[in-house]
Write a protein that binds this DNA or RNA. Structure first.
Lengths: 330, 330
DNA sequence: TTGTATGCGTTATCAG
DNA sequence: CTGATAACGCATACAA
C-alpha cells in the first residue's frame, strides 16, 4: 500500500501538496493537480483513514451498539439513524453485542479510543455508573431502552401508556380474563409495560391475577411455551397481551396448535409492530412504535451533541399508536 | 481525553513504560505497574485506537458489508461470522449499504484506508474489475452472492442444484403447471436458480412457459403482487417456486386473499429457510441454506487470508437441504 | 501556489 | 526493568 509520500515522490511535489489535492478545498495549480492525480491513479493510492482521523481528531463515523440485528425491530430504527447520519456526513457502523456485556465493552473501548465520534446505544447491558462515566468522554444517546438519572439523552415512547392502551382495547372488547406475557430483565420498558397492564385492569375493576402473568425472553419459543402453560389453567384467559410481537406470534401459533380460533377463542395483542406482524395470518394487533422516527431523532440528538458539545434535551418521547388487526377483532 | 503522555507524567515514568503496562506481555516491576495503573484510573485513560492501529498497521477489526440487515437471511450468517471472528480475536463491524453503490464505496474506502484488516462482502454492487483491484490491496471474501473469475474467494451453496431439487419436489407431487417468481438483477444466484427451475421442468418433459415466470425484488410486496397476476391466468398454476422466502410468504398471503387453500389449490415453495418460514402459517417448504456455516466458513477463509497472506481455496460450496413443510404437503 | 516542520497517540527498537 | 527516540500516515500552521 502506497502512502502520501510515495505519491509526492512520484509526482515530484511535497506531501503537503498531495494532501491539498486530496482535500479539494485548497488552492492547487491545474498542472500540479494533474500531476498529482496521475500519480495517485498510477499508484492506486488511498489515504490512510487512521492517519487522517488521528490528525483531525475526527472520524465522521458513529457506532450503533445493539443487542441483535436479527430482531426486525432494530433494523427499522437503524434505517432512521442511517438516513439522518448520511445527511449530516456521518457513516454508521453497527456493532452486534448479542446482549453480551463483554462484547459490548469491547465496542465501548473502541468508542472511547476515538474510533468514532459518538454512539447510539440500544438496550445496553452497562450499568448506570459506567454509562454516566462514558457520557463524560464521548457523545452518546440511548435509543428505546434507557437508564434514567444519568446525563445522557434518550429517545423512546411512553411504554406505560402504550401498554395501558393495548390492554384497554382488550377490555373494550369485553375481555376480563387477560393474561400478560412479559420479560424479567433490567429494562425499564419491561416494568413499565407491566405497570400499564396493571393500571388498565385496575381501572376496569379487574383483579390482578399472578397466575395470568409469565415472563419470556422476547423469543418466538418463549411465547409459544408460555401460551401452552396459560391454556392449561382451569380458568383459561380469553385474551393475552404480549410485550413483543415475536412472543405474540409464538403465542398464537401455540394456541392454533390447540385448535383454538384467533381471536374468537383467544385474542392476542403484541407490541412493536415489526413488519412481519401484518404479514402474519392472522395479522397482529399491536402497539406501533415509530421505529424509523426513533432512529432519526436519536441521530439528530447525537449530531447535535457532537457538533455543539451538548444535548438540547435529555428526554425525547415519541408518539405510539394502537394498530388493530385480525388477532383481536374479527 | 488524556493521552499516554499524561499518564506517564502523572506516574512519573516514560510513555514507553505506560505502553508496557497497557500491553501486558512486557516486563514491568510490580511497583511501577501499580503507579501506572493508579494514574490510568485517576485520569480515566483509554488508549487511542487510531494511534495504536496506525502504529501497528493492524486493527483486529473486520468489516461485513451487506445490503440490508433487515433481511433475516443475513443476520444468521452474521452470527457465524461473529463467532469465528471472536474466536480468532477479531471484532466485527457491520456496514449496511442499502444496495446503494455509493454507500458501499464509502465503506470500501474505509477498508482500503486500513480501518479494518479485511472484509466479507455479501451481495456487493461493485463490478468485477473493481472487486479484482480491491482484492490486490486487502483480504476480502465474498459470501453467498459472488462474482466469478476474480481472484477473491467465495462461499455459497450450489444454487442451480438447490432450485432443481425444489422444483423436482413440486413435480414429484404431481404438479405440472409450476410458476417461477425470481428476480432480475446482476446476481448469479438469480440466474442459477432459474436455470435449475428450467432444468427440472425439462427433465420432466414439461414445457417452459414464459407466462409462468415473473420477477420481483425479494420483497413481500413483490411476491404478493406477482401471485395476484399469476392467479389471473386462464391456466392458473398449481404450484409456485419462489427464490426467496419473503416473496413466497407474500405469494401465499396473496393466494389466501383469493380464498385459495395452500397447498391444496396452490403449493408454494420458498428459498433460504429464514427463521420465520417455520413460524408462518402454513409453514413454508423451502431450501435451507446453511446460513450460520456460510458465515463461519467465510470468516475462516478471511482469517486465513489475513494471517497467511493468501487464500487456501477460491471456491467453497456448502450443502443445502430441501425442507418440506405445510405449504406444499398437507 | 508550494514546501517545511510539526504533532495527532501510539508502539518498537535500541541502549543503558 | 526503564527511557529516549523514531516512525506509523496524515493535515495544518507558517514561511517562502
Amino acid at each position: 500500500m502506497s502512502t502520501i509520500n510515495d505519491v509526492a515522490a512520484r509526482a515530484g511535489v511535497s506531501a503537503a501538496t498531495v494532501s491539498r489535492v486530496i482535500n479539494v478545498n485548497s488552492n492547487v495549480s491545474p498542472e500540479t493537480f494533474k500531476k498529482v492525480t496521475k500519480a495517485i491513479d498510477e499508484l492506486n493510492y488511498r489515504p490512510n483513514i487512521l492517519g487522517r482521523n488521528l490528525r483531525k481528531t475526527k472520524s465522521e463515523r458513529i457506532l450503533v451498539i445493539l443487542p441483535n440485528i436479527s430482531n426486525p425491530f432494530y433494523s427499522e430504527i437503524v434505517k432512521g439513524i442511517e438516513d439522518v447520519a448520511n445527511q449530516n456526513g456521518y457513516y454508521v457502523m453497527l456493532c452486534n453485542t448479542d446482549s453480551d456485556l463483554a462484547r459490548e465493552e469491547k465496542y465501548i473501548k473502541m468508542l472511547k479510543g476515538q474510533l468514532a465520534d459518538g454512539a447510539i446505544l440500544m438496550a445496553s447491558e452497562m450499568n448506570s455508573d459506567d454509562l454516566a462515566e462514558l457520557s463524560k468522554d464521548i457523545p452518546v444517546v440511548q435509543c428505546c431502552e434507557y437508564k434514567e438519572g444519568i446525563p445522557m439523552p434518550h429517545v423512546s415512547i411512553d411504554n406505560e401508556l402504550a401498554a395501558y392502551k393495548a390492554v384497554k382495547h382488550l377490555i373494550g372488547l369485553g375481555h376480563e380474563k387477560i393474561a400478560f406475557i412479559g420479560a424479567k430483565n433490567q429494562f425499564l420498558s419491561s416494568s413499565l409495560r407491566k405497570k400499564g397492564y396493571i393500571r388498565a385492569l385496575g381501572e376496569a375493576g379487574i383483579n390482578f391475577d399472578p397466575d395470568y402473568c409469565d415472563y419470556g425472553d422476547y423469543s418466538y419459543k418463549s411465547g409459544f411455551r408460555i401460551m401452552k402453560q396459560l391454556l392449561k389453567l382451569s380458568q383459561r384467559p380469553t385474551a393475552v397481551f404480549c410485550i413483543s410481537d415475536i412472543m405474540a406470534i409464538g403465542a398464537i401459533r401455540s394456541a392454533m396448535e390447540e385448535k383454538l380460533q384467533i381471536p374468537e377463542d383467544i385474542a392476542v395483542c403484541g407490541f412493536d409492530n415489526i413488519y412481519f406482524s401484518k404479514m402474519f395470518k392472522p395479522s397482529l394487533t399491536t402497539i406501533s412504535q415509530p421505529m424509523y422516527d426513533l432512529g432519526c431523532v436519536a441521530m439528530d440528538a447525537l449530531v447535535n451533541m457532537i457538533e455543539n458539545g451538548k444535548a438540547e434535551t435529555m428526554h425525547y418521547f415519541l408518539e405510539h399508536e394502537l394498530v388493530i388487526r385480525e388477532s383481536t377483532v374479527k
